[in-house]
Design a protein around this nucleic acid. Structure first.
Lengths: 217, 217
DNA sequence: AAGGTTTTTTTTTCAAACCTAAAAGAAAAC
DNA sequence: GTTTTCTTTTAGGTTTGAAAAAAAAACCTT
């Protein structure tokens, strides 16, 4: 499997993960920053390898094979991220590009031993779940901070946007995985939200609140 | 830099490392298992990037740039090998292929942090020296077991052949880095050598003895 | 059925790596 | 010092992988 094939699989996986529905050629093209015609080419290739269910004009979905392959790539990506953060002291905003390379290393043994070495973590540094060697994923109960009601209290368990800019912003505000966040009030004018993080009161925009996952306590 | 370019650099480095001389197109072709004409193509490319000194029909050598680049690849390869053996419990005969992939990951920060994480090792699991971040190499005093005289005693500090077959043979015979080896006698008929390894007497062929590095004690 | 959108097909392009065959150069043998 | 042999380069072509522009086809909505 080439890097490109793996990247397509990964994109299709992420696009269909939420809804488990079909995804359009255009949607893939947009995510991969390429042209729809290129996507069609690749879909044919992936279809021949029985990695996607592809019917012309109907969108695509992953086959069981494809889903498993995609999960293994995600598994590798997230395990390497844990390694980079836990063992090599990278911060959570620095690991994506390196993991993007490491996820293509081919060795099942390597990744399973890495998994054990890291203590079989179930989540990566951004709170995303890590599929196990069989592709099983333990989902955690979580919701967006923006969906809380006034007075509710949660613990930060993940981020939706994993861009370096967003993560650095969170660092600056002292918000990290595990932070206790109390939803104080919502400003109806701009939908910004007042929260209390570890005894400090903060006001954050709706955009920020819509990219933070919390678990109610 | 492409994978292929990196692999050529590495090959030229290994071919010239011992003698620090020029290396022929054919020698590279043989090592890379390709045709001489393909090598010529690549040499032109590398020459344009100022990585090799290339004059037609005269053989090639690495420029300072090229030498540094090659050393950085070797550095990565050997550091990853240490990681695989020390942290992930691979044995020394299993690590080559995986390290061959990992050596192409591009991130200086990654490799320097890995270096620190591993405690800045100076040798890989086969006893080969690991260049530091500046390309400096600490050579160790060593000689082939086959060059010893009767009665001399050494400690195994490396292997010349790093093939899986050879390494497995050594495992079977209980010979590892650090083993104390006494040169007992040489059989003139087939040049085989009687040795004593940690109290056990063994007879090994000249081929074996010519692939084991020892340091006199 | 028309018009607009999306998707696919077809044809090109591009780049990297490699190959074969033939020519050129260097080295060795005579 | 010529001839032969070996090595290396050149020239031209193939393969593979990825991508794209333009045109055609299919689909959707009204």
């Amino acid at each position: 499997m080439t890097f490109s094939e793996e990247n397509y699989l990964k994109s299709i996986y992420h696009l269909t993960a939420a809804a488990d529905s079909e995804v359009s050629t255009n949607a893939i093209a947009e995510m991969m920053e390429t042209k729809a015609s290129s996507v069609t080419d690749m879909l044919k290739k992936l279809s021949e390898k029985d990695l996607v269910n592809y019917k012309k004009y109907q969108g695509v979905s992953l086959t069981e094979n494809g889903k498993l392959a995609a999960k293994m790539i995600v598994r590798k990506h997230r395990l390497w991220e844990v390694f980079l953060v836990e063992k090599l002291n990278f911060s959570w905003d620095e690991v994506h590009d390196i993991a993007e390379q490491l996820e293509h290393i081919k060795s099942e043994q390597l990744i399973n031993r890495l998994d054990d070495f890291l203590g079989n973590p179930t989540e990566d540094p951004h709170g995303d779940p890590i599929p196990d060697a069989n592709g099983r994923i333990v989902k955690i109960e979580k919701q967006l901070l923006s969906e809380l009601n006034e007075g509710q209290i949660g613990v930060c368990v993940g981020v939706k946007d994993t861009s370096s800019e967003f993560l650095k912003y969170l660092d600056k505000q002292g918000i990290a995985l595990g932070s206790k966040i109390e939803f104080l009030s919502r400003e109806s004018f701009d939908l910004s939200v007042k929260i209390k993080v570890d005894e400090r009161e903060l006001s954050i925009s709706n955009k920020i609140a819509s990219n933070l996952f919390v678990k109610l306590v």
